[in-house]
């Protein structure tokens, strides 16, 4: 009897997981298909294709791009600047948060300056940026990092500060030094916050990189998209944004393994645990 209950529970659990996965993918594909169909139908009879192009036109453009070595060169450029900028910004944000999070005075001294630095309208500084960093990869990486750094920094600080004091206390009493406290308590405690920041800043990094390409560049998907926009080629603009989105998805896929370290967290449910 008990054995059967356990087995049935396990089977039901596995079933729920499979159903949830299937539902998620069916939903995602459904949304995309619905949007594409609606768009195709609306383009022409409802709205002039000049404004919104059409899925077929965009697909054509994408097919052309994929066949040209030129396109891959541009895509690689944007992918590189996004990835490098993200890494630099995330690393800097996390590293700077550690010494500052638990030093209240130091933190309060620098806090307003961080805010000031974050409110710089980076786009408006375009020409100066070119002056400082040239027109190559560097300014794109810097801009991408700039959009990532502050969010990661603030979230890491917040994550460190919400670690329960009791966990730190027992660690110290059991003989843990600063380093052990950091590694065994503060780091895993702050990790959910840090990873959440990573997830939201990855697209931000790409936007930073593309803004950089807009300011001055002869390379990158941002440059391609902008060139198409300048010639009012709506299909090219839309194809460009799709490629950019693909880059973000690709990069966020590479973050996935990181979230496996959060396995310990209970799943919060509004309804019972039997709900999907």
């Amino acid at each position: 009897m008990s054995g059967r209950v356990i087995e049935e529970q396990a089977a039901a659990h596995a079933r729920r997981r499979r159903t949830r996965r299937a539902l998620v993918w069916a939903g995602r594909i459904g949304v995309a298909t619905g949007a594409v169909i609606a768009w195709e139908l609306a383009s022409g009879p409802l709205v002039r294709p000049f404004f919104v192009s059409s899925p077929t036109a965009v697909a054509q453009r994408l097919a052309e791009w994929f066949g040209s070595a030129d396109f891959w060169f541009h895509a690689r450029f944007t992918l590189t600047s996004t990835a490098l900028g993200f890494l630099a910004g995330a690393l800097l944000g996390v590293l700077l948060a550690w010494p500052l999070a638990l030093r209240r005075v130091a933190y309060r001294i620098v806090e307003p300056y961080f805010l000031i630095a974050y409110s710089v309208p980076a786009v408006a500084l375009g020409p100066v940026f070119i002056l400082w960093f040239g027109i190559g990869l560097a300014p794109k990486v810097v801009l991408a990092a700039y959009f990532v750094f502050f969010v990661v920094f603030v979230n890491t600080v917040e994550g460190i500060r919400q670690v329960p004091q009791g966990l730190i206390d027992v660690t110290r009493v059991m003989g843990g030094d600063r380093w052990a406290t950091m590694r065994s308590v503060l780091l895993p405690g702050a990790l959910p916050y840090v990873l959440a920041a990573f997830r939201v800043t990855l697209p931000a990094a790409m936007i930073g990189a593309v803004v950089g390409e807009f300011i001055a560049s002869n390379r990158g998907i941002g440059y391609l998209t902008r060139a198409a926009a300048g010639r009012y080629q709506t299909a090219g603009v839309i194809a460009g944004t799709i490629v950019l989105a693909a880059i973000v998805l690709l990069l966020s896929l590479s973050l996935r393994p990181l979230s496996r370290v959060l396995r310990w967290r209970p799943e919060v449910r509004l309804r019972g645990e039997d709900a999907l």
Binding site: P164, G166, L167, D169, V170, T171, R172, V173, M174, G175, G176, A180, S184, V185, P188, G189, W264, R265
Partner: peptide, 29 residues
């Protein structure tokens, strides 16, 4: 660090399994 302290809250590390929590003090020492 010479006393053992069992606090009012259990203060187990939520990201460590039970055995790894029991091991924690020994590890720190």
């Amino acid at each position: 660090t010479e006393v053992g302290y069992i606090t009012q809250d259990d203060n187990l590390l939520p990201w460590r399994s039970m055995a790894r929590n029991v091991e924690y003090g020994l590890e720190l020492r």
